[in-house]
Design a protein around this nucleic acid. Structure first.
Lengths: 333, 333
DNA sequence: CTGAAAGCGCTTACAG
DNA sequence: CTGAAAGCGCTTACAG
């Protein structure tokens, strides 16, 4: 097939097909103004030559973008890798490629948005959480606004201070559901282990929980949104409040860290303390004990976000949630 | 900062700095032939304007590539997401962006390589396994060869039939290590649950294991390289060979599936049967029971692969392995 | 050391 | 319906 030392160009296809590059371009784009039979023939030639348009030239010339940028906190985190998986699959459906970037703070975020913009992606998806304090987002939002004004499409996951279509995970309702579950099990001395207070995701989940828990929360602390943070939170909570009967983590990954800490401390779950998570990452059902959590379906969230960058539905959509009761929570003894 | 509705261009910077675009280009590239003070001034202006070069124009004009393609099986799989995480971080060190693609079979692989090539990435990393049967790789290898001939850099993870620098996970040695461990624990009736026989990764891990196990293997079956495949394998193995005392999965994800199946069947691990995995994904320590496995350090593998696309070390490198003994394996009773 | 100009591979008005 | 030509934003020989 490809014996050439450089990719086949449009002009190669045009020559072989005996047409101008303008006609070749139109034929391959399916643009009007070419006789159907000629277009078909050009397409056949292009196929046979394994031709794929140079994305840079196409982009520079003002054609359609084939690449979309996806900004996550850490692809390593199952929450984000499941979103990315859904996004990559959805993008592939329309022949688009996904550029994945890490951005853990506002400075990195701004840098990545600029890089993505310079890379001339057609769209960007912000999968990371929005920030509670708007001023911290202002620089990156200005850059995104400029991107959108120049025709770029943006979609966000969660509550951002940005006028862009959004996929809204049901964080408040999910928080309420998990809290309800624990209250029904009789728990009244509860420790909440939260992620960074700066994130809207954390604020929303917390809001739903505190709504239901009310005074049952005896301890609330903020930690990194990872395994380590969860372990730390669990140790601190139990040290300061040994009377706690349930530990509520704001993500599954944190809950898994909490579970590990409790194991080390010799605290039996759920006999001596219930533990719950949030997200329902794939492995939540396989840890010990299996984790009671709120399912968000991150793959669907990622796929929807990609679709929002394609269509002309500038609205926001939710994606549901579902309480998953497993072994890590039990009636208070 | 950016009030414009379109990104700042080189010509904007040049005008503001009072120089030609040629001089501006050289200044920003750090190319020789510009007086240091002028270059410094241009850089200051560019910074102040938040200028980032249009990657497409740069690429078309023959400048350096800033994007690298990473082809994985499924980003959702922790094995690959950990590789991707290391790769993205390493690429960011040199200001490069990573395009992540899914390719589950030779046809998809060929399509993704072409798309990546058309997208004019400067380098590609094949993170998925090579294939035992060379003819199945020939089409994609031809495309990769053409890419390399035209100056593209390629690095692969694992044993591929391709003349490119490679990061070689120690699959054979790792297989031997885990097998040794089980033999030392006294197991002599062992079921091996492997991934697809078509993959060199599977062939290599198997080779190391069978070397040591010899006739102790009473059952060997191939399944999908995922949780489902592991569960299926465990059920089949126990149904056909109830005398088995150890189940060896060829990846942690498969082992987690096996653990789930055994739980459903009421088989106690490790009391009634030992179970081992391979890879040491992050969650291996947190499942129930925690998983004995071989640690490969995928993040390091991903980072090394990216580095191989940058340097001029066209060699192959290994990245070590380490037996991690946890709760899922025990002495035969 | 600096600049004018060609060219990368496309797409899209503009002519015919 | 088809083609010649301009132009996207850069980089890099080629002049000076």
């Amino acid at each position: 097939v490809a014996e050439l030392s450089r990719p086949t160009r449009l002009i190669d296809v045009a020559e072989r097909a005996g047409v101008s590059i303008a006609t070749a371009s139109r034929s391959l784009a399916g643009a009007p103004g070419v006789s159907p039979s000629l277009a078909e023939q050009v397409r056949r030639v292009a196929d046979a030559m394994g031709y794929v348009a140079n994305a840079h030239a196409r982009s520079l010339a003002g054609g359609h973008e084939t690449s979309v940028g996806l900004i996550v906190g850490e692809i390593d985190d199952p929450y984000f890798s499941e979103i990315a998986s859904g996004a990559i699959a959805a993008a592939a459906e329309t022949g688009r490629l996904v550029q994945v970037c890490h951005a853990g703070d506002p400075v990195e975020l701004l840098a990545q948005i600029r890089l993505l913009r310079a890379s001339n992606v057609g769209a960007m998806v912000l999968a990371g959480s929005g920030l509670v304090e708007p001023s911290l987002e202002s620089a990156s939002n200005a850059e995104l606004d400029a991107f959108m004004k120049s025709g770029g499409r943006v979609a966000v996951v969660g509550r951002h201070g940005l006028d862009a279509p959004a996929v809204l995970p049901e964080n408040v309702a999910g928080g309420r559901a998990i809290a309800q579950h624990l209250i029904e099990l009789g728990h009244r001395r509860i420790a909440v282990i939260a992620g960074p207070a700066a994130l809207t995701t954390v604020a929303d989940r917390l809001e739903g929980m505190l709504d239901v828990f009310g005074p049952a929360v005896v301890s609330l602390s903020h930690h990194s949104f990872n395994r380590q943070g969860g372990a730390e939170g669990a140790r601190l909570a139990l040290a300061d409040h040994p009377e706690v009967t349930a530990i509520v983590a704001l993500s599954d990954v944190m809950a898994i860290g909490a579970l590990a800490a409790l194991r080390e401390l010799g605290v039996q779950v759920p006999r001596e303390a219930s533990v719950s998570g949030f997200d329902d990452i794939a492995v939540a059902a396989d840890v010990a004990p299996s984790l009671t959590t709120v399912r968000l379906d991150m793959a669907a969230i990622g796929a929807e976000a990609i679709r929002l960058t394609g269509g002309d539905t500038p609205t926001s959509i939710g994606t549901g949630h579902e309480l998953k009761v497993r072994e890590s929570t039990a009636r208070r003894r």
